[in-house]
Design a protein around this nucleic acid. Structure first.
Lengths: 338, 338
DNA sequence: TTGTACGCGTTATCAA
DNA sequence: TTGATAACGCGTACAA
């Protein structure tokens, strides 16, 4: 049997109302009474039952964080960014991994709704789950902030990187190094940021009057494996001198493929990645990539969410686009081949 | 205003008891009544309020997972292992990152207690927070499983790797390759697994009658930076031919130091790590390391926790030690130098 | 087969 | 400055 506010009240010879007031730091309490109650609370290690509290206050001091997979090294940064901010306001976070799998997304959604979280940070993937998501959310009026990946519906707040611009500057960098046969390895095509990054790539080519060759655009999976396979294709069949991988993980795969084929980076092949993962320092040569400030994105999203929670949903809706940055390291080099 | 069991009852012209029974799949309900209620529930998208439910059932279908930092690539594996198992039983997980920081650990503990989680998976760090932890836990009678890092007090269940054995086989591997000047980079000394791994190292040396040289044992921090600094010391001042880094992150630092000093791996220096992080495939040459099956550890811990939750705390207490495995790759080589 | 009424631990309202 | 009591949404013992 856990100790409750009643026990404290009894011990202190006061009503539970008085104890409640002390707990919640309200005034209108005699300083003697307050001190005594505080002492007892300290002594017995009493902690208010947040479940019971939530019943009446209608808030749980809890948010839900839905991501594809913590094991993908991009997400832990976001997770920490979110957590560090909400913790400051004494919020706890429910973590749900969905693997971008529709049934898991729906399951998480169901749970999250039952748990009565005060808000949700959502990194969405599939379109179908999203319809359901929108239903659930609009039904229950839970504040939401989308993170990194948008929804076609613009009714939600969101924090994104300017993916098109990012794709543009990455490609431009390669063009400036006189590459004109630049392969591009994309992500799964239902993820919007992949499309946007690709658009940036196309824009840069067009602007520089380099003809777009469809064969140089190979679909990947945002995983090492996909990068590896795509790179083999690009290197063997298309003889590209540069590859823009739409995330670092796939760039890692490119390195592997290059090593196997005896293709030297950056001499024979320039590589640009996307994400600036912490551990791409391990690569030799170090990877030129786009930094999209994952931790900060998490922070910004969390702040937006807290603002929504505190002020209600009817504040001006908006999205924030963070500016990507090109980090030039040693995997890109002037094209001297053709 | 959210929709409640009352609304369903009203719509269906039955009592809330009947609805409750349908929700909880109890029998003794007319099949017509049941169907009708189910229909209405479906139609309006009703979901029981788990907060209210927890009030009466005394369980929240929620566990707390306390880790140092998701950004350390070892932990995401554990997190997923835990989550995947508990999700199967419809549990949600609260994630708390503590950075091994005492005040954060205590704060997480406070929150976790208030949240009335049904159980806790705890990767502990500091000794002081642990006393408090033990108080809190024994007070409130929450089932706990320790993960990866033990507590001096043996009152808890736990899942660990046999760290001493791991340290032993790693070192033995280097000895078998005729290394006799083997540096060891340790973790923070308040983390028990570091001590245990070091013991394995010492045991292997002693057993092979290699004199232990204190200067070859350099303290690290379980981060790349610490590995880098320690490796420089070992390479410049001690001229070791092999280094056993007590985790992969520090081994990464060793690679960096070696590169800077023009020391070739594995020709001039053999390196063994610990963790078998997914992304150490990126290293060139690939890292020989100890696999400690992080994902499985998470799974096992979660299963133990669920068993405790369901059967009560008074089941036989025990700890499980998983067997580490040496993964030989290309960072170790026969010593031909001396 | 179904319904009434109480209780879970807290906050909020109103009265003293 | 303090207290009695209703209410939050649900499960369940007991009654019908």
């Amino acid at each position: 049997m856990n100790i409750t506010i009643k026990d404290i009240a009894k011990r202190a010879n006061v009503s539970i109302t008085t104890v409640s007031r002390v707990i919640n730091n309200q005034d209108g309490i005699g300083s003697d009474t307050r001190r005594k109650i505080l002492e007892i609370i300290e002594e017995v290690g009493y902690r208010p039952n947040s479940i019971a509290r939530s019943m009446v206050t209608k808030q749980t001091k809890t948010i839900g964080l839905i991501i594809p997979d913590v094991r993908n090294p991009f997400f832990p940064e976001l997770v920490r960014g979110v957590e560090d901010i909400v913790n400051q306001s004494n919020y706890s976070v429910f973590l749900y991994n969905t693997d971008g799998n529709e049934s898991k997304e729906l399951e998480s959604l169901r749970l999250i709704k039952e748990k009565k979280v005060d808000g949700i940070v959502y990194m969405c993937t599939y379109g179908k789950a999203n319809r359901k998501f929108q239903d659930v959310v609009s039904q229950s009026d839970i504040p939401v902030v989308l993170l990194d990946r948008g929804l076609d519906n613009k009714m939600f707040h969101g924090v994104y990187v300017n993916n098109e611009k990012a794709g543009y500057i990455a490609t431009k960098h390669l063009i400036d190094l006189h590459h004109n046969k630049i392969g591009c390895i994309t992500g799964p095509d239902h993820i919007m940021n992949s499309k946007e990054r690709l658009n940036g790539y196309l824009k840069a080519l067009t602007e520089s009057e380099i003809k777009v060759d469809k064969n140089l655009i190979v679909p990947g999976d945002y995983q090492m494996e996909g990068g590896y396979i795509a790179a083999k294709e690009l290197l063997v069949q298309e003889k590209v001198t540069a590859i823009f991988a739409l995330n670092d993980l796939m760039a890692f795969g490119v390195y592997q493929a290059a090593t196997e084929l005896g293709v030297r980076i950056p001499d024979d092949l320039s590589v640009v990645g996307f994400d600036n993962l912490k551990y791409n320092k391990l690569l030799n040569p170090k990877l030129t990539t786009i930094d999209q400030l994952a931790y900060q994105m998490g922070e910004v999203a969390a702040k937006m969410l807290l603002r929504q929670i505190n002020k209600g949903r009817d504040i001006v809706q908006h999205s924030i686009y963070l500016e990507p940055e090109l980090i030039v390291r040693n995997s890109t080099k002037e094209n001297t081949i053709c």
